[in-house]
Structures are given as structure tokens and as C-alpha cells.
Design a protein around this nucleic acid. Structure first.
Lengths: 186, 186
DNA sequence: GTCTATATTAAGATAGAC
DNA sequence: GTCTATCTTAATATAGAC
């Protein structure tokens, strides 16, 4: 295994996939190392603090993902609904078309360190802020804009739970389809 | 510990609390046994199949909880919004005022047997059906009633995730407050 | 029906070779 | 920077006393 090693971002992406599917406690170091194609000892070399460290790296990666795939695309040119729709497609992919749990939801389950909870809360806050900006730009007043942003994320998170538990992606995909009209009124 | 033993329902309630906070894989038998105030060996006496068995018992208990606290109260007498509000208060308590994860969400994470996933999907389906009945009784046509029922549960599950991750129960409590008007239009 | 005791396997973590 | 080897602790599971 001297070749085909993964860089830090790729490694965090693999770990993200383990964490969101098993929760914090359910993600054993063996599983995390295996998902990275590494022996446990090599894993400790990269993340001396073990599971805590890689979980924090995953939280940072999640924040970076939202910056790159939600905050930035929303700032781009073009009509508002079209920009929102671009973000909806990124979210669709991020959540595996409704088959993958949200890492904010499941990595925040009991067992992780307080810094992890704080980092996940920050990532969520950035998401709300990005959606709020769009609702403001769309003409809603501040109170209504924040309400819409929160409700849009409630819709995404809630429909994801329903889709996943009932093994019916349609609910999640329909929610995403309605996102542009909901956040950026025509 | 010859006295103060818990019956099956009480035991399942304790296990439910462990499962929803740690997910399936993250809930060790040691933790489950400890939460029940039993030694591991005693736990195996009651649930010979170990974690799988108690998880299935928890899923059955969840179904029973929805039957008793959602389906039945909605059938009671009184104005529709008042009945829905009674259910909202039960849900508020069930979810620890927005501090406790939903067991449908987190017990369905990877690791559990297929029968568990099926049982949790059934419980969710019963919830949707109960809310659909209310929306129908309230005057919505069938398609809109199903949509409202699903959306009401999306609101609950989604706002619970937001409240929990951001440690802000307000979002969840506000969603519950709006439930009667949403499901049973005045 | 619950306990103590114990066996086996997996998880968490480090040392040292390459 | 990754590996094998090893240690320690925890998890899973069973046997047998009470």
C-alpha cells in the first residue's frame, strides 16, 4: 500500500461517509481506517487523537463543503431561482439522492467531544446564513427571510429522514424540487 | 438486585433512550444492560439474541407509543385543533422538548437487521396514516391530506434536527405550536 | 430471573521496523 | 508515511451458582 494513498480531503470524505452512516460511537477506528484503505497505526499517524481528531477534520470538511457548494454558488450570477436550483442539485448529490443520512444529524449524536458539537452547529449556522441571504435578496424582510431559511433546511433534513426511513427517495427529491420557489419567490 | 426489576416495557423504554442517543452500532450491550440496571448475563436471559432482539422490542414499543399517543388521541372527542394540540404535547414530551433525537432517525442507522428497518418504516407509516386521517377529517382532499401529513412530520423531524444540532429548542417548539393550524385548518 | 465468573473477539492505542 | 506486532481495555456471549 505504498501507492494509492489518499490526501487529507479524500480521507475526510471517506470518514464522513462512515460517520454519517454509523453515528459517532458506532464508527469504530477499525472501520474508519478500513474505509481509508489504511492500517490503524497509519491512521493514528495522521490523526494522533484518534476518532476525536478525524471527526473534527470531518466537521471542518463539512463546513468547507457548504462554503463551496452552497455559499459560493448562491453568490454567482443568474436569476435567483436558477442559482438556488444549482445548490439543490449539489445537495441532492451530497445526500445520495435521499439515501444518505445527514452528517450534521448523526455525527452530533452522543459520544463526541464538545468541540465537535460546536463545529457542527457552526456548519449548520453557515447554511442558515447562506439561505437567509438569498431570501433577503429575494425581497423578504429579515424576520421572514430567517424563517424561510430555517424552514427550507427543516424541509431538507426532515424529508431526508422520511425518505431514508421509508426507503422512498421521492419525498426528499420533491422537497429539493420545491426549494427554488420556496427560498427565491419568482 | 432481586427487587426493583423492570418489566419489558420499562426495559424497552430505557433501551429506546440509549438507542436514539447513540444509534444502533453505538449502543453497546454493556450500555443497554447498564441503562436497565441489569448485568449483561441477565440481559441475555431476557433477549437471547442480544442487541438485535432488544432493538426489535424497542421498535415494537415505538409502534405502541404512536398508537397510544398519536393514533388514539386523534380519534377522541373535541374540536380537531384541540385534539392535534394534545398530540403535539405528547410529541413534545417524547422528544424531550427538542433535546432528544428521534429513534426512527437514529435507530435506523447502519448496523441493524433488515427486520428492524422494516419495523421502523412501519411505525413511521402508521404516524403518516394517523396524520392523514386528521387532514382528511379537516376537509382536505386525499392527495392534499397525505401531503400535509408528510409535511407535518417533515416539520417535526427537521426542526428536531435543527434544534438538537444548534442546541436551540425554540425551533422545534415553534413547529409543534404550529401543528394544529397546519394539520387541522380552523 | 439475576448474579459472578470466564471465554472470545473486537476496539483503542503504541512501539519499532522499513 | 505506512506497515507488522503487540498491549490494554471494552464488547459480545455463555456457563453455572443462587
Amino acid at each position: 500500500m505504498a501507492f494509492s494513498r489518499l490526501n487529507d480531503d479524500e480521507l475526510a470524505d471517506r470518514a464522513l461517509d462512515v460517520f454519517r452512516n454509523y453515528g459517532y460511537e458506532g464508527s469504530s477506528l477499525s472501520r474508519l481506517a478500513e474505509s481509508a484503505g489504511l492500517e490503524k497505526a497509519s491512521f493514528y499517524y495522521r490523526y494522533p487523537g484518534g476518532k476525536k481528531d478525524i471527526a473534527l477534520a470531518v466537521a471542518a470538511r463539512v463546513s468547507a463543503w457548504f462554503e463551496e457548494n452552497v455559499v459560493e454558488p448562491l453568490k454567482g450570477a443568474g436569476p435567483l431561482p436558477l442559482r438556488v436550483n444549482r445548490v439543490a442539485q449539489r445537495l441532492r448529490k451530497f445526500y445520495g439522492d435521499g439515501s444518505q443520512p445527514c452528517v450534521l444529524d448523526t455525527l452530533s449524536l452522543r459520544g463526541g467531544p464538545p468541540e465537535l458539537q460546536a463545529a457542527l452547529a457552526d456548519a449548520l449556522q453557515a447554511w442558515v446564513a447562506a439561505f437567509t441571504s438569498i431570501a433577503l435578496e429575494s425581497g423578504f424582510n429579515r424576520i421572514e427571510a430567517v424563517r424561510r431559511a430555517q424552514q427550507a433546511i427543516i424541509n431538507i433534513e426532515g424529508s431526508l429522514v422520511l425518505s431514508r426511513v421509508s426507503a422512498n427517495p421521492g419525498i426528499f427529491l420533491r422537497t429539493l424540487a420545491g426549494l427554488p420557489a420556496f427560498l427565491a419567490r419568482p
